[in-house]
Simulated assay, not measured.
Amino acid sequence: MSLATVDTLRPSAPAPVAAPAPAPRLRAVPEGTEARGFVLYVGIDELKAAAAGTDLGRIVEALKQLTAELAPEAETYAAVALAPAGAGGRDVDVVRLALQDPAAIAKHRHTATVDEDEDRAASGVVVDISRKRLVLDNQTVSLTYKEFELLQYLVLREGRTIERAELISSLWSNADEDEIPNERTIDVHVRRLRAKLGRYEDIVRTVRGVGYRFDRHADVSIRHASAPSPDLF
């Protein structure tokens, strides 16, 4: 029997066992404080969740269940961040701002300050949907609630002619029957809005026999809504 053969009959040495990877450590905790938990911001809207074959509620429940399996004594609390339909920005940034993340709030305030500086520096029209205001040549214009709603509705449908009937059904959907205007009243609202737009009145165009359309000029800028509001699961 060769040495090689004898060697093959000997029990092989146990394979070395890899040491478990060290658990990730928290950043240094300031003296006099202790870590009591953490926040995980998840940025995903309802459409993206549906495309992935799930929904926000199921994601929340899965995360709660995982936490309970890893640490049965852990307490969990979940909230969903809401934002105006069509609001821009990254989903996770919206969540952080809605849930009062200090870093996100500081960034948002800085951005607002920059926007105000731009208002003072630039001429033309600023339709600020996020703060519900209209600025013409560095001056804020006083619009009624309905006048701004009307302008906003047209702005968000830029380039599309909106019939008077659609304006009535959309902007007065919750009004009492005796408060719902007729098409002539819509014309009055538009006329007042255009008067306040002054030399920029032609951004709200009349399409004869049909309705109204917003046409953006080179000196018109739109700031979309970004301030979210939280709600709970």
Rank of each mutant, 00 (worst) to 15 (best):
S2L: 09
A62D: 10
T67K: 08
Q100M: 11
I186G: 03
L3M: 09
A35R: 08
T76V: 15
R58H: 08
G32H: 06
P20Y: 03
P22K: 12
A23Q: 08
E118H: 06
E31F: 03
R192G: 04
R184G: 13
T161R: 01
E166C: 03
F233E: 12
R164C: 02
L171E: 07
E177R: 13
G86P: 05
V126C: 08
S130N: 15
A112Q: 15
E46D: 15
R223M: 06
L232G: 04
L82E: 13
Q152A: 04
R160G: 00
A85T: 06
R90Q: 11
D115R: 15
H108N: 09
V92W: 05
S226D: 07
T144G: 15
R164P: 04
E179H: 11
E183M: 09
F38Q: 05
A19G: 09
D137K: 03
G211M: 06
R36G: 07
E163M: 12
L66C: 07
K132G: 10
V125S: 07
K48D: 14
I180R: 15
V210F: 07
R27P: 08
A122D: 14
A4Y: 08
A15W: 00
R36H: 07
G57P: 02
K146E: 12
Q100I: 04
L70G: 02
E166Q: 15
A83H: 06
S170H: 07
P11K: 14
V127Q: 02
L193M: 04
L9Y: 03
T111Y: 10
S12N: 05
D219T: 12
L197Y: 04
T161K: 05
E166K: 10
E149D: 15
A227M: 11
L40M: 11
R191W: 09
Q152E: 14
I44C: 13
D215N: 12
A15D: 08
G88V: 01
E116Y: 07
R199C: 06
A225M: 05
E177S: 14
L167S: 12
R120L: 15
L40Q: 03
R157E: 00
L150W: 06
A71P: 00
A85D: 01
S221C: 11
I168P: 02
I105G: 01
R10Q: 09
A23M: 03
D128N: 11
L40W: 03
D231L: 13
G37V: 06
L99S: 00
P11Y: 02
K196N: 08
E179Q: 15
L82M: 13
P16D: 11
L156Y: 00
G198F: 07
H224E: 12
L136C: 01
R192E: 14
A71D: 15
E183T: 13
E73H: 08
L47C: 01
A62C: 05
V17K: 04
S226Y: 15
G159L: 06
V210Q: 13
L134S: 10
T144H: 11
N182H: 01
R157L: 00
A165T: 08
A18I: 01
F233P: 14
L56E: 04
S169P: 01
I186D: 01
A104K: 03
S226A: 02
G198T: 01
A103N: 03
D93G: 10
L154A: 10
D128F: 08
L136D: 01
N138M: 11
A81W: 00
E118N: 10
A51N: 11
